[in-house]
Design a protein around this nucleic acid. Structure first.
Lengths: 117, 117
DNA sequence: ATTTCATATGAATGATTATTCATATGTTCA
DNA sequence: TGAACATATGAATAATCATTCATATGAAAT
């Protein structure tokens, strides 16, 4: 039992019930990894820009006043997590949002931070 | 103009349009901070447990096989971001989810990681 | 009041990570 | 083929952060 509280016995069933409805460890890990991607203001800003329309790397860098390298590194993370997709057109590569979850997740987040407080 | 790409002039209107619909800097920062809270597997596991029912700190520690201190530190972060609320009952303090956004955000995240791949 | 128990918290540490700098890859045009 | 341009990436650095350990706070009971 370790250093749990003394009323532990009373809540054992409660604990087991909670653990039963919990997803497997690797899914929880992947989920945290996904939210980690949203947890950076540079990536959030990139997603907001792409929410409107696709854009190439250099324009993103210009729009966000950051170096091409920094943007490119972050785009890689966004793409690895399937939040954006890319398309080549000549020398440029255009990025756009991958699916609808991005908008929904960010939307709910916005509701949360604007609603209360 | 810095080191932007040469077709820059062509996309200037596109950049300005994107920046116009972008929330103010502090909101973007708060939004990233919120998602940062979801971006840790310990906090995700806490939220999943509380999704079913309220629970005291020691039971959470037992359920997740972690020290009371570690859980308490994470609960503080969750509470500061209004994702959980607390209620005292005798010596124990029971934590529960604060509002519906938690479920929606986690649900969308789960959809995203399970759907594709 | 004092002891006990549940929770909170400050400081330290190890791990993770965003940005920068330099450079590599891959495309286009001459 | 070679020069110019857009993007990608590896290594290094600085900053952030989760956990641990020790200890403090605060409630309950004897």
């Amino acid at each position: 039992m370790g250093d749990a509280c003394e009323v532990n016995e009373i809540h054992t069933d409660r604990i087991e019930h909670a653990l039963k409805s919990m997803p497997p460890e690797d899914e929880l890990y992947d989920l945290a990894e996904l939210f980690k991607v949203f947890g950076d203001s540079t990536r959030i800003r990139i997603l907001f820009v792409l929410f409107g329309e696709e854009m190439c790397v250099c324009d993103l860098a210009e729009a966000l006043s950051m170096t091409q390298s920094a943007i490119s590194h972050q785009l890689r993370i966004l793409k690895q997590n399937k939040l954006v997709k890319s398309r080549r057109e000549g020398k440029s590569i255009f990025y756009s949002l991958a699916d609808d979850h991005v908008g929904t997740i960010i939307g709910q987040g916005m509701e949360h931070i604007t609603e209360d407080a």
